[in-house]
Design a protein around this nucleic acid. Structure first.
Lengths: 198, 198
DNA sequence: ATACTATTCAAGCGAATGGTTGAACATGGC
DNA sequence: GCCATGTTCAACCATTCGCTTGAATAGTAT
């Protein structure tokens, strides 16, 4: 076996992973799965795509061994094969931001398009939580909260935010968080709260 | 601008990076560039590909902003756009190894195919170097050595290894290193040395 | 059993990708 | 000016990709 053949084989294997990462939908699927296992239909809904298409993407991710699945009755629940896959996703986003001015602009443009959203960085949040100055809510779906959440956070999935308006009327400032920079739940929650003057 | 549109845009940008990583040759190019800037022809030679093809791949990497170039007269020298791109490459290789049994097998199979290569892990090497028990040589091309190299290492590019046989005849054990797990210079050097009984 | 649901498969289409060849640009040396 | 060299472009081919539609499969509930 010559060096050339071996290198082709080795890099060909890496490219399997790379190819699987070469489509927006698949990246989004991986991002969603990083939050917790999900079935095909849930993903299809979140992506606004047909289940057949999502299923196909999942097959491709499966071939690259980036995800695994488990059958629960007629449901097929997919999840990331390794934690390192989530790291890889983060690294891609990091590189994209570092390297593609478009991404930074896009993000900035979109968030400032909303009025008066006040982002809080992790250090600030930690300080605020320590003094009990704020009320921290996790607006992701309950299952994701159960999988993991910030210390001191209360689970209030986005659809339930409206139910708490009354009890929050005179409470401390509210900080909402969700999945990361490319998740919009928190933004939506803040919009809801602001409409009620919270 | 709806959420869906925004997400498509954001993940579409990430996918630009992903797509660029979806081909064995491009990954190999990035790996080579991680060692230092190179021109098209050098890369083409290393990849055993036509310069037209390599040029094309470089354009794709350029569009994804993973590499930049600089013109020196008629030479066009390419290099990684960001250090984080090299990190991304490492992460891909990590994931591939973790996730694709094939890669591990391939690697293991190939190295054990050679007789009696004795790999040294970083911790062992540090200990050996501290006691001065071994002689460490960097068998990469001189330019890469100049860009960065391990402390205490001496630059002996592969083609020059043969020139040192005499002076090494009775020296300490020799440890050769190169670019990483998927670089074969060190292996070739060790083979040469073993043929001479070193 | 039967009906129903979640998921996958199969076929087909339009678009994109990867590679080759040969020509077209530069740029530097004579 | 002219040529040699390194690089890129353009046109073509075969292959692959991504999606849609409609059917097939496998489990569950009635």
């Amino acid at each position: 076996m010559s060096d050339r053949v071996w290198k082709d084989a080795a890099y060909g294997q890496f490219a399997r992973v790379g190819k699987a990462l070469g489509h927006a939908r698949r990246l989004e699927i991986l991002d969603l799965l990083a939050q917790g296992p999900k079935n095909v239909e849930t993903l299809a809904e979140a992506l606004a795509a047909s289940s057949a298409a999502v299923s196909r993407h999942l097959q491709i991710l499966l071939e690259a061994h980036l995800v695994t699945f488990q059958k629960h009755g007629t449901y097929v629940v997919y999840q990331l094969a390794q934690h390192s896959v989530a790291d890889l996703m983060r690294q891609i986003q990091t590189v994209s931001e570092a390297v593609l001015a478009d991404v930074r602009e896009l993000y900035h443009l979109y968030l400032t398009e909303q009025d008066a959203l006040a982002p809080v960085n992790p250090e600030e949040l930690e300080a605020l939580m320590a003094t009990g100055a704020v009320y921290l809510i996790d607006v992701r779906p309950r299952t994701e909260y159960e999988a993991a959440h910030l210390p001191g956070a209360v689970s209030v999935p986005l659809p339930e935010v409206a139910d708490h308006f009354a009890s929050w009327q005179d409470s401390r400032p509210i900080v909402a968080y969700c999945r990361g920079r490319y998740c919009l739940y928190a933004r939506d929650a803040v919009q809801l709260l602001q409409q009620r003057g919270l």
